[in-house]
Design a binder for these strands. Structure first.
Length: 480
RNA sequence: GGCGCUAUCGUCUAGGGGACUAGGACGGGGCCCUCUCAAGGCCCAAACACGGGUUCGAAUCCCGUUAGCGCUACCA
């Protein structure tokens, strides 16, 4: 048996939508799993809306996600001649006919049908035209499209995810396959290309189910065996409607900007509408490939839950060694215009377990590079209010012994020991001295252990910041 | 309206006739750990849409109802 050939076929009329990204992922996973071939085809036949910019963004998005392709990108627009030839062949074989109806006439037919409350179906008016009438109109230069003769009878297939799906030919239209400008309509272009590219499995969104019987009819008319179809469910917004712009971030690039890691995005997307069975959640790349089957794809549409995505990203963030995070964090810091004058790997290390996105990591690293960047948050403010004069006093209490620590001894262990001693010698709880330090350095009551924080910020900057903060909140009282 | 698809905790899902007192994860609540938070550990609340069949037995199979979604172009 020959290896499967699958394709991802986006149209470059917009950004790479997470739904499209997931379709691409499933195609890629299937090709990887079976040792098959993944073809990338850009469906740019809609000249009005397709742009090179969109094509570039889509390719970038796929690369970012680590989705590769073995062939292409092919551009559908380059196959116009074959599409036209296929349409004309169907015409010659009596499987299609010329239609001279104008858009206005068709519009009127449709409106009439709608008013009558009946389902619209093309009247086949032009099908009834005699050969001479057709010739005459062509001679006169009347524009015409080519319509495919939709055969009656059942058209059914065994969908790889939905099992059997059946349509009746009589419910379907004699649809247009070639426009009056000789360009192909989607359904023809797709079938023509999929045949030419010997695609064996069509894995695509659920919204194409109603196109499938038309395409199968086209395969048959063209004397070809249809491929296996696998229709994957839609991705919905939190309100249960098809995910769209108004739900917020829907483009893969948005998540990249929000500091999501590609591996986490891939994992999350894979689990949206597919399950390896059992309790597995975190799947590394090769594991995903090994486990992937079409049968594991869900029939039901899935809601895109950003909270779970962020949780998953946090999992990857915690698990990844800090130096592997260096590049994306550095890029983000540059974007934030933060000067990096020290090794930030230790800072990433001490902060990543508490973060859900790269953005979040970068923000915290920025504060550790320069505590003056810290912004007092509500919790920090509340602590200062609650402690009153003790806030600055305890800060001063800690500063002396801290200052006594030499640059060489400025380590997390030594710092912890010192802070313990400070607390004990003044009958304070550890938190009474640690929390003010934490707020002084970060503006918040939340961070890694304070001794680690001090170590990572560095002696000079930490001491200076402590002193400044104590002075600022000392409120004129003598603090000794 | 027509045609089609779908239906398990709020969300993602496990489940493919008896192992179900329906499992896991996110989110929520609580406890432990603890200088705070996160992580981690433990615990709690939370679902088989409804109605008929088939069967000794149904979340699982069949039919219907309801609801949601998709398509219904000389867009893709």
């Amino acid at each position: 048996m020959s290896k499967p050939r699958v394709r991802f076929a986006p149209s470059p009329t917009g950004y790479l939508h997470v739904g499209g990204a997931r379709t691409a992922l499933f195609n890629w996973l299937y090709a990887q799993h079976t040792g098959g071939t993944h073809v990338l085809r850009i469906e740019d036949t809609d000249r009005e809306r397709s742009t090179e910019e969109h094509t570039r963004i889509i390719l970038d998005g796929l690369r970012w996600l680590g989705i590769t392709w073995d062939e292409g990108p092919y551009f559908q627009g380059e196959y116009a001649a074959r599409h036209q030839a296929d349409a004309e062949r169907l015409l010659a074989e009596g499987k299609a006919y010329r239609c001279f109806c104008t858009k206005e006439e068709l519009e009127a037919e449709r409106a009439k049908a709608e008013a009558a409350g009946t389902g619209y179906r093309y009247s086949r008016r032009c099908f009834k035209l005699g050969a001479e009438q057709v010739q005459e109109r062509i001679r006169k230069g009347t524009p015409s499209t080519i319509r495919f003769i939709m055969p009656d009878g059942e058209i059914a297939w065994d969908d790889a995810v939905h099992e059997r799906i059946s349509f009746q030919g009589r419910d379907l239209d004699d649809f247009v396959i070639l426009r009056s400008d000789n360009s192909a309509i989607y359904n023809l272009a797709v079938v023509s290309d999929d045949i030419a590219m010997r695609i064996s499995h069509v894995i695509r969104g659920d919204d194409h189910i109603s196109n499938t019987p038309k395409q199968i009819a086209l395969y048959r008319a063209l004397g070809q065996e249809p491929p296996v179809f696998a229709h994957v469910p839609m991705i919905l917004g939190a309100d249960g409607k098809k995910l769209s712009k108004r739900h917020g971030a829907t483009a893969v690039g948005d998540y990249q900007e929000q500091g999501i890691l590609p591996a986490a995005m891939r994992n999350f997307l894979a689990l949206l509408g597919w399950s390896p069975g059992g309790d597995r959640e975190i799947l590394k790349g090769d594991e995903m490939i090994r486990l992937f089957t079409l049968e594991g794809i869900q029939k039901k549409a899935a809601v895109f839950d950003t909270t779970k995505l962020e949780w998953m990203n946090g999992q990857y963030l915690s698990a990844l060694p800090a130096d592997e995070l260096l590049e994306p964090v550095r890029r983000q810091l540059e974007h934030m215009k933060v000067k990096i004058d020290r090794d930030i790997v230790p800072m990433i290390e001490s902060v990543k377990a508490r973060s859900r996105t790269i953005l979040h990591v970068a923000e915290q690293v920025a504060v550790r590079l320069d505590p003056d960047r810290s912004v007092l948050d509500a919790k920090g403010e509340a602590l200062i209010r609650k402690m009153g004069s003790a806030f600055a006093r305890n800060l001063v209490l800690a500063s002396g012994p801290l200052e006594a620590i030499g640059p060489q001894e400025w380590t997390a262990d030594k710092l912890l020991e010192t802070l313990r001693t400070v607390a004990e010698s003044h009958g304070l709880k550890l938190g009474d001295v640690m929390q003010p330090v934490r707020v002084a350095l970060t503006g918040s009551t939340v961070s890694e252990p304070v001794n680690e924080l001090l170590a990572v910020v560095g002696r000079e900057r930490a001491l200076r910041r402590l002193e400044e903060t104590a002075r600022r909140w000392g409120g004129g009282e003598s603090a000794a």
